[in-house]
């Protein structure tokens, strides 16, 4: 028996997890569709129109939220002291479990969210033809779609979404209870500490050095620097997630 990776076993695992864990995401999808529907209701009730930007911002926001909470919902019990033992004891290797989780959180759940959001929006447009000017999409996971307003597919956006998902996977594997709240608190704490640190550094550094740093960032490219940070986040998050799947105690 291949103890590290077996394609047959991996296929069974993905099928099992798609059939068992992905349905937990249904409530999130229904909620998102309801929010899109509520937006349409407001346009009818208040006789408003809502342009591309408004709709796209809402869909983009909902898509971001669904990507963020996806791992927490689908793999809610993976490290639960009572319910998590079944996940740990499923006869598949850590690499198979990790790869399956990655596939589901990084591709399956976002794809389902994407389809739900775009389909809800398109359906309302078809039904109502009210207050909207055409089909839109969110544009993160489908670079092949022709965009109505020139919103182009950006690697940065995709990498930032992947970083968000991988960090959700990591925090989901670290925290056992109140996972989403604790993760938001961690993000807030990290942001707060970062602002304080940057402020302290900025106050204590001479203008000359600050200009040099600014020039360096400009020369290097802000987007490139951001992408490197995101890639580092992804690498660290995925490594921690793998180790947690391998070692978590129940």
């Amino acid at each position: 028996m291949n103890e590290i990776f077996d394609f047959n076993r991996f296929g069974k695992l993905v099928a099992y997890e798609c059939g068992s864990y992905v349905p937990r995401f249904t409530k999130v999808l229904v909620t998102m569709a309801c929010i899109v529907f509520a937006l349409w209701i407001t346009t009818v009730v208040f006789n408003n129109t809502i342009g591309f930007l408004g709709r796209k911002s809402l869909l983009g926001f909902l898509f971001g939220i669904s990507c963020f909470i996806g791992p927490f919902v689908a793999y809610k019990y993976m490290n639960d002291r009572k319910k998590g033992y079944a996940y740990a004891m499923l006869p598949a290797s850590t690499l198979e479990k990790f790869t399956s989780m990655l596939l589901i959180c990084m591709f399956v759940l976002p794809m389902i969210s994407y389809i739900t959001l775009v389909a809800s929006d398109a359906l309302l447009y078809l039904v109502s033809m009210c207050g909207v000017g055409g089909f839109i999409d969110i544009g993160v996971y489908n670079p092949l779609v022709i965009y109505f307003d020139g919103y182009s597919f950006s690697i940065s956006i995709a990498v930032s979404f992947m970083a968000s998902i991988s960090m959700s996977m990591m925090f989901n594997s670290i925290f056992r209870k109140s996972k989403i709240i604790k993760t938001i608190l961690v993000y807030m704490a990290v942001s707060f500490v970062s602002v304080i640190l940057v402020s302290i550094i900025a106050i204590n550094l001479s203008h000359d050095i600050l200009y040099r740093i600014s020039d360096f960032i400009s020369d290097f490219g802000v987007e490139k620097l951001m992408n490197i940070c995101y890639l580092l986040c992804i690498a660290v998050s995925l490594y921690v997630t793998y180790r947690r799947i391998e070692r978590v105690n129940y």
Binding site: Y85, M89, P91, T94
Partner: peptide
């Protein structure tokens, strides 16, 4: 390490 070969031999009912 919870290897699959090992896990397929055991079952635990808590």
């Amino acid at each position: 390490g919870r290897k699959p070969g090992f896990l397929s031999k055991i079952f635990y009912v808590p």
